[in-house]
Write a protein that binds this DNA or RNA. Structure first.
Lengths: 195, 195, 195, 195
DNA sequence: AATGAATGAGCTTTCATTCAT
DNA sequence: GATGAATGAAAGCTCATTCAT
């Protein structure tokens, strides 16, 4: 990577990191491009070399952060040691939950912005091939394929929406109290679907 | 109610209705006070006689719409005919789901903006006394009280987050296809909690 | 006219006068809205209460100035004393020429921007009814009607384009030298058309 | 011409062709150097190796296109076969008119930008020596010399200004309808001047 | 209570120009 | 010669808010 290429990467990273900080601290509406550029240490015009506008940056940021989150879960959760699809899924979910518990800014950012549609589109572009990973988790039994996708969707949405509020506001109970209930709920759903 | 009072009420209603339409159509960020006032048929200055700014109006709108939604469910779902708490809850949930299926704008608006915390705070202010209604649904068995609240919370979040995407984008499947799975999931959770 | 109405008229006039001065002095491209507003003594935002953008202002200015020019010619040239259409037309043309010779800024502004289409559209909106005036000049002989319009068009274009250069740059000769030739040319055209 | 020279010529031509297209399509004000460079297939910096700024390029383009127009008329109109100055002039004018009728973009570009002064300055620089050509057309009779120049000027301005509007907008009549009138007008002027 | 003209801070966006590679 | 990333001044435009009427 030449000097120029290296420099571009640095500016890109700086812009994204700064934007993440500002977006989570004060929201996208109250964050101006001037703010981002200035705090990232680049000229205002430079912003437009990398992003169309702040919403473009925002979208790219969501995808980027989501990828980091999943990549970590896939590489560190040890889900492969589980024998069944449900076990694998739960292991991954738990890893992600722990990451989010320890990084509330990220949770706030991801959850408010990550829809199932965005997630699926993003997954299909990632390297390594995460689509293959899902194949691996869910199995290749094509008869159960659609059902499994619904299963994943249901569990992810349940975990995402409940934990968002619980972790951030401790309402209606705190995370430690809620986790056992959540696990029971998830297992109940998975068990029922498997019938 | 005198002529003046009546006129004020008309302006207020017009402002809120217009704001709801604009907020859902183009988002709060892209909706200006000038837009709202003009389309509501009042002068810009008049807006400030009723609301502090557009965020104040937005908050009042969320609470107002949520109340309408729950009021309808409580008055029309016939939940009282169910014998157990779970049955009552499911009946109310179903009614709300049907309302939202038929009013996607409302779904979009409510879901993006209604958090558990806002909901609880709002409920406590409503007339008639909805707190009493919840008492009625959940029962007064103080031992199960907290558990039931978690139960309600979990189910509401599950229903809210999954149906939001399904109804609005038909992803990963459309609502007709998804509903049976959702019902199984909800019943599985409720059954498990009851053990 | 109330205080407010009076004030609006003042601001409008100030904006148009200032814009005319700046447009003629430095061109529309190099004139910013901030310049116009500042020198007109109003806030930048006020500009947008009266005009869509600087091109909108420009167009209105062209029409406004053209109207003044023609109004003066019609009211002061005494064209009615001429017996034939050609004489009337020449009298009006001469009056306009003298106005422009004495107001080169106006000439520059009008000529670069006044097209036959704009002129015709503008004329039809003016008060008093200038369309009727043209009727009066050209006569109501409907058989010659279209021919007369072409005649007027040809003469106006000839006078406009030749005098523009001559008055402003004295090239290829100065106005005093050119006028006799122009008059001969105009009379030659009119005489020929009358055949 | 070496490879390098050839390459330079290619880039120059590409820049001028692209600029002509963009200037006529959207005007000089809305055409950026970035646009020109990108669509011409060269880097932005390269632009500055050939032109000072876009106005420099514009001026060079006007002169270049005008030369092409006149060169074609002089080489293809057969004006030499006419015996008198008036006939020669009319023959050249007609050829130019036909070129412009078939190339409206060029008409638009030339007319908005070609003044008598620019034309004269440009003519004096061309190769072959077009000044001599004018000598040839107008004759060397120094007594009539200045009169003939005025004649050329008057006719060119008349033709230019009337045909601009007629060809481009068909207002007040279309070209086919207008041409006979124009020819009568030109002949009337020329005949009168010859008296 | 209602109006809407006026404000001007503040935002997004463009773009000519430079210069290290 | 050629490049194109970077710059930052400058422009257009929006809009919440005020206040005289």
């Amino acid at each position: 990577m030449g000097r120029v290429e290296e420099n571009k990467q640095l500016k890109l990273t700086s812009l994204m990191d700064t934007a993440f900080r500002l977006f989570t601290a004060q929201g996208i509406a109250k964050t101006s491009i001037a703010d981002i550029a200035q705090q990232a240490g680049v000229a205002k015009g430079t912003f437009y070399l990398y992003f169309k506008d702040k919403y473009d940056l925002h979208e790219k940021l969501v995808i980027h952060k989501a990828e980091q989150l999943f990549r970590h879960a896939l590489e560190h959760s040890g889900y492969r040691e589980q024998s069944d699809a449900s076990g694998k899924l739960l292991t991954i979910v738990d890893d992600i939950l722990y990451q989010l518990r320890d990084n509330k800014l990220l949770l706030q950012f991801i959850n408010k912005n990550l829809s199932w549609g965005v997630f699926r589109r993003a997954v299909s572009k990632w390297e390594p091939d995460y689509a293959a990973v899902f194949e691996e988790i869910l199995g290749s039994d094509s008869a159960r394929r659609k059902t499994l996708e619904i299963e994943v969707y249901t569990v992810l949405e349940l975990v995402g929406s409940t934990c968002y509020t619980v972790i951030l506001s401790g309402d209606p109970v705190d995370l430690e109290t809620y986790l056992p209930y959540l696990h029971r709920a998830v297992r109940a759903i998975l068990a029922d679907f498997t019938k």
